[in-house]
Nucleic acid binder design. Structure first.
Lengths: 229, 229
DNA sequence: CTCGTTTTGTTCTCGCGTTCACAAACTCCT
DNA sequence: AGGAGTTTGTGAACGCGAGAACAAAACGAG
C-alpha cells in the first residue's frame, strides 16, 4: 500500500485553475522522445516539420504524436506543420527541463560513475550537485568534477541546494535505507537503479530502471523465436 | 514501418501445438520481478508463500500477480499458496533464464564498463562473451575479465558463440550503424542504451533504456507538485 | 475571391490491462 | 467425517491507450 510508482491516478484529481490539463502518463513518457527528435531536426537545420516527419524521427505513429501534442495545446499550423524551435521550447517547458534540476547520486560503483559522467543529464537541465557513498575509501575521489562525499552529508546537501530528485545506484540491500533517508531529507522523486522494490510514502515518485529485467524480457522473446523455428 | 519494439501483436499470431500460450507483454515484463522476489524469499528461508506475500515482495497487486501466474499454469495450491522453489523454477524456465545466453556489449565507455561488471547479468544466465569498441586505443584493456576487441570481430564472435542478444552502449550517432551490423550478423534481440531511435527489420526485438528520459519524467511530475503547492 | 491541397486537431471505436468479486479447492480442527 | 477457514484461479466490469477516420483550418494558384 506504500510503494507507489508514478501513477496517473493521483494526478488526475487535480483542480488547478490555470493550466489544469492532466497529461496522460503514456504521453508524458513520450514527450522526452519528441524533444530529442526535435533537437535532432533543429541541428540538421530544419525549421518546420509535419507530424509525419516528427513521428518518423521519434519512431511513433503520426496520429499518436498529434494526439500527444494536442494535450499541450495547439502549437501547430494546419496545412503547414510545426515550427521546430517553438514546439521544442513548448515541450521543454511542459516537461520542466527549461529550469535547473539539482540531483544527488548515491552509490559510486561502476554504474554511479557512468551516471555521473553521463552528458545527457547536464544537457537537459539536470545538474549533479553531489556524489555520495557510504564507503570512506571513496571520499577522496573526484568523479566528473564532483568530489565524492560521505552519505551522512545528504541532508546538508539537499537543503543547501534544494534537491528534489535523488538517484540510487547502490547495491540492492542498501537501496531501501537510502530511499528512506532521501525521503526524510525532503526528496520527492527517486530514480532507482538498484534491483529492489522500494517502499515510499504517498507523494513520492519512484521510477525503476532494471538492467537485468530488460535482458530477461528479451530472452523470453528470443526463446519463443527459437521454439517455433 | 521498420522500427519495431517488442510487441505482443506478432507473437499473438502463433499456432504452436505445444505450450501455445501467449503471455501478455505486460505480464512478461513483471515475471522477472516475481523471479527476484522469489529468490529473495528463498534466501530468507521461506518455503511457501501466498499470493499476498509474493505480491507485497514484488510491489504489485495480489490479484494481478495471480492472474499473471495463471498464464503460466496452475502452480499454486488453494488454501496453501505457492512452493517458492517450484514456482521460481517454473518462472525461470518460462522466461528462459535456465539456459545460458551469450551476450555481446558494444561500446566500452562508462556505461559499457558498468554493464560489463554488472553481476546481475551473470547470475541470471547472461554471459558476456565479448566487449567490442571501435576505438583502437581500448583494444588492450581487460574489463571484467573479458578483453576488449575491435568492432570488426563482431561477426566472428557472434557465429562462434551463437550470440542472439546484443547490447549497444555507444554514443547516439554510432548506434544505428552498430544495430545494422548486429542484425546483419544474425543478432535478433537488441538492448539499446544509446539515446536514439533504432530502425530494425521485422523479427528483431529492440528494447530501449534511456537514462535521461527517466529523469525528465520525474522532473515533469516534480514540476506539477511545485505548481500546486 | 474561390477552389483545391495540405496538414492539424479531434472524435470514435476497439483492444489490452487492471481490478473486483466469487466459486472451487485444499487444510486443519473437532 | 464434516465444517470452518484459507487461498487460488478466473469470469466480468471498467478504464486507459492506440489507431483510424474525418472535419476544421491554413495556404497557394488562378
Amino acid at each position: 500500500m506504500t510503494a507507489r510508482t508514478t501513477s496517473a491516478k493521483t494526478l488526475g484529481a487535480r483542480t488547478l485553475g490555470e493550466g489544469a490539463r492532466d497529461i496522460p502518463e503514456a504521453t508524458v513518457a513520450r514527450l522526452p522522445v519528441y524533444l530529442r527528435a526535435l533537437t535532432s531536426l533543429a541541428e540538421a537545420g530544419t525549421r518546420t516539420c509535419s507530424s509525419e516527419d516528427l513521428a518518423a524521427a521519434a519512431g511513433v505513429n503520426s496520429a499518436k504524436l498529434r494526439k500527444d501534442l494536442s494535450y499541450l495545446g495547439s502549437y501547430g499550423t494546419r496545412g503547414v506543420g510545426y515550427d521546430v524551435d517553438y514546439l521544442r521550447y513548448q515541450i521543454a517547458r511542459e516537461i520542466g527541463v527549461t529550469q535547473d534540476w539539482p540531483v544527488v547520486i548515491v552509490g559510486i560503483g561502476n554504474l554511479g560513475h557512468a551516471l555521473a559522467n553521463y552528458s545527457g543529464f547536464r544537457s537537459r537541465g539536470f545538474r549533479v550537485v553531489a556524489l555520495l557513498d557510504a564507503d570512506p575509501e571513496r571520499h577522496d575521489e573526484v568523479v566528473a568534477g564532483v568530489d565524492v562525499r560521505p552519505f551522512d552529508d545528504l541532508e546538508q546537501i539537499v537543503t543547501d541546494h534544494g534537491v528534489a530528485i535523488g538517484v540510487i545506484a547502490t547495491p540492492a540491500l542498501a537501496a531501501q535505507d537510502v530511499a528512506d533517508r532521501m525521503v526524510a531529507c525532503g526528496i520527492t522523486s527517486i530514480l532507482n537503479f538498484a534491483p529492489s522494490v522500494l517502499s515510499v510514502p504517498e507523494g513520492v515518485d519512484v521510477r525503476k530502471v532494471d538492467l537485468s529485467i530488460e535482458l530477461q524480457i528479451l530472452a523470453y522473446h528470443e526463446q519463443r523465436k527459437a521454439q517455433t523455428a
